[in-house]
Computed example of a mutant assay.
Amino acid sequence: MYRVTKSISFCYGHRLLDYDGKCRHLHGHNARAIITLEGETLDEQGMLYDFNEIRGLVKDWIDAELDHNMLLHRDDPILPALREAGERVYVVDWNPTAENIARMIFEHIAAAGYPVKDVTLWETETCYASYSSR
């Protein structure tokens, strides 16, 4: 198997509902998504996928949907105030944990037809979560 990996950095804010730690408060992260694609064959250039192609697929979507955005659960009571203030919010049906954000990025790539093996989301310099196909 061949594998290629692309790293994409972005910033986002969130908070976790029904959580008893510091993450119950609104806060932000400088995140890094590590995306790995896997396949058995290379193209005529000798590549599994061009890194620029991966960047275009993932970075453009992350920039539009996640970067400098508040990721919040649909039941978060702060949503009406943020919307009224014209703030960017990305509403999800689950707590926006690093695990769930990694899964969301994975599913975006898979839905586009790419053979994504795993996505790791570094939430801080010392903490990360991953989601994989196996």
Score class of each variant (00 low, 15 high):
residue 45 Q to K: 15
residue 129 A to W: 00
residue 16 L to I: 13
residue 2 Y to S: 04
residue 45 Q to R: 15
residue 113 G to K: 06
residue 69 N to S: 10
residue 126 T to Q: 13
residue 92 V to D: 06
residue 5 T to F: 00
residue 85 A to D: 15
residue 16 L to W: 13
residue 2 Y to M: 09
residue 54 I to D: 04
residue 114 Y to D: 01
residue 84 E to Q: 15
residue 82 L to F: 15
residue 122 W to Y: 11
residue 101 I to W: 04
residue 77 P to F: 03
residue 106 F to R: 03
residue 13 G to W: 02
residue 88 R to L: 13
residue 81 A to H: 14
residue 27 H to I: 13
residue 91 V to P: 06
residue 21 G to H: 09
residue 17 L to K: 06
residue 20 D to I: 12
residue 47 M to H: 05
residue 50 D to V: 07
residue 121 L to H: 04
residue 75 D to K: 08
residue 37 L to D: 03
residue 54 I to F: 05
residue 14 H to S: 13
residue 89 V to C: 14
residue 26 L to G: 15
residue 84 E to R: 15
residue 118 D to H: 11
residue 123 E to H: 05
residue 111 A to W: 00
residue 8 I to A: 04
residue 87 E to D: 13
residue 1 M to I: 11
residue 23 C to D: 12
residue 126 T to I: 14
residue 108 H to E: 04
residue 3 R to K: 15
residue 90 Y to K: 12
residue 70 M to N: 14
residue 119 V to P: 01
residue 129 A to S: 11
residue 77 P to L: 07
residue 24 R to F: 03
residue 54 I to E: 08
residue 131 Y to L: 02
residue 120 T to C: 13
residue 3 R to M: 10
residue 113 G to P: 03
residue 53 E to K: 06
residue 100 N to E: 14
residue 76 D to M: 03
residue 61 W to M: 02
residue 66 L to Q: 05
residue 41 T to Q: 12
residue 58 V to N: 02
residue 44 E to L: 07
residue 45 Q to H: 13
residue 73 H to Q: 08
residue 29 H to P: 02
residue 78 I to H: 07
residue 51 F to H: 01
residue 94 W to T: 06
residue 91 V to G: 07
residue 100 N to G: 12
residue 77 P to C: 06
residue 109 I to M: 01
residue 65 E to H: 09
residue 16 L to D: 03
residue 103 R to S: 10
residue 81 A to C: 11
residue 52 N to A: 06
residue 33 A to M: 05
residue 1 M to E: 14
residue 75 D to E: 14
residue 44 E to N: 05
residue 32 R to S: 02
residue 123 E to A: 12
residue 116 V to W: 03
residue 74 R to Y: 12
residue 132 S to H: 05
residue 123 E to K: 09
residue 50 D to C: 07
residue 36 T to K: 10
residue 129 A to I: 03
residue 112 A to Q: 10
residue 53 E to F: 00
residue 125 E to G: 15
residue 95 N to A: 05
residue 63 D to H: 02
residue 48 L to R: 08
residue 28 G to L: 09
